[in-house]
């Protein structure tokens, strides 16, 4: 399979990238890891006139934590997330999601930012970002704006990212004190898209939930933030009854469709079971100490 013809640009700076995006408008498309975009081009689901390959821009593959914020650059690849000791110790929901994205070869190239901009409702990172209450910095030639993950996704493969904008940075509130997380994913085989995925992120204070984040993968037209379940957990001690109630609310927030991976009832039930298991796992991790 061969993509439709396009012009190729390989800028070396962010400014050059933003100038190209500005100039090319609807016809320009950013190429990061390419592990979703290139298959889309080959299948002719997408045929932009121009590709702007950002792989030669230096310094876009960063992950750092400062001023109470975890910052991630647009070329930070799944593999780097999988191997990060910072994520393993302080952001377990990210470390667990990273190693379940696609397969190891895809993870060598694919990026978190690219995956978010692609906005596949079965993508894993969207749920993680919703659970962690992430914010995205969208830069354009004229300026920059911050958009919360919950306001970013707009239906299947849709986002509020404008054609002239680059998803330039991901900002996540840094964990502090006792925190825990988990990413639960059901897939038919390695490398398949999720049948169901659930991201859980907890911040605890004195044995009670200060904030809870729950994101759902592949059970709706976009990644879903289970806000009622999150609210039910806030301020609570995480006993089994509270967890069960939150899991039922998360299942109610899911809006799956029946397909070859399972029926509506089945997927909704997996959301319930995964939310329960994920919350218990996150709670145990917070107790064990993931301290900031």
């Amino acid at each position: 399979m061969l993509p439709a013809p396009f012009d190729y640009h390989a800028p070396e700076t962010t400014e050059e990238t933003l100038a190209l995006l500005d100039q090319l408008g609807d016809e320009g498309k950013v190429l990061a890891g390419g592990q979703s975009l290139i298959p889309m081009l080959k299948l002719r689901f997408a045929s932009p006139g121009h590709l702007i390959d950002i792989n030669r821009v230096q310094g876009l593959d960063f992950l750092d934590e400062r001023d109470a914020t975890l910052r991630i650059g647009p070329l930070f690849r799944h593999k780097a997330a999988e191997r990060s000791s910072l994520l393993a110790s302080r952001y377990p929901v990210m470390a667990e999601a990273a190693r379940q994205v696609a397969d190891p070869i895809i993870r060598n190239r694919g990026t978190i930012g690219g995956s978010l901009a692609h906005a596949d409702p079965a993508g894993d990172w969207g749920s993680v970002m919703l659970a962690m209450d992430a914010e995205f910095v969208l830069r354009s030639k004229g300026g920059s704006r911050n958009v919360k993950a919950r306001d970013f996704f707009s239906g299947p493969f849709g986002t509020t990212l404008q054609p002239n904008e680059l998803l330039a940075e991901i900002h996540i509130p840094a964990t502090r004190g006792r925190s825990g997380g988990a990413y639960m994913k059901l897939e038919r085989k390695v490398g398949d898209f999720a049948t169901v995925g659930v991201a859980v992120h907890l911040q605890m204070d004195d044995g009670k939930v200060r904030s809870a984040g729950i994101g759902l993968t592949a059970v709706g037209p976009q990644n879903i933030k289970a806000e009622k379940a999150e609210a039910a957990l806030r301020g609570q001690a995480l006993d089994d009854a509270t967890i069960k109630e939150a899991a039922a609310l998360a299942a109610a927030a899911a809006d799956p469709t029946s397909d070859q991976r399972g029926s509506v009832e089945y997927k909704r039930n997996v959301v319930r079971v995964f939310t329960e298991r994920g919350l218990k796992r996150a709670r145990d991790r917070a107790r064990e100490g993931a301290r900031g």
């Binding site: 190729y8 390989a10 390419g34 592990q35 290139i38 390959d53 792989n55 070869i105 060598n108 190239r109």
Partner: peptide, 15 residues
């Protein structure tokens, strides 16, 4: 040195 699926990389990216 890193494994990639060469059906999902453009030749021009090997420059």
């Amino acid at each position: 040195g890193v494994p990639v699926k060469s059906c999902t990389v453009l030749a021009v990216q090997a420059d």
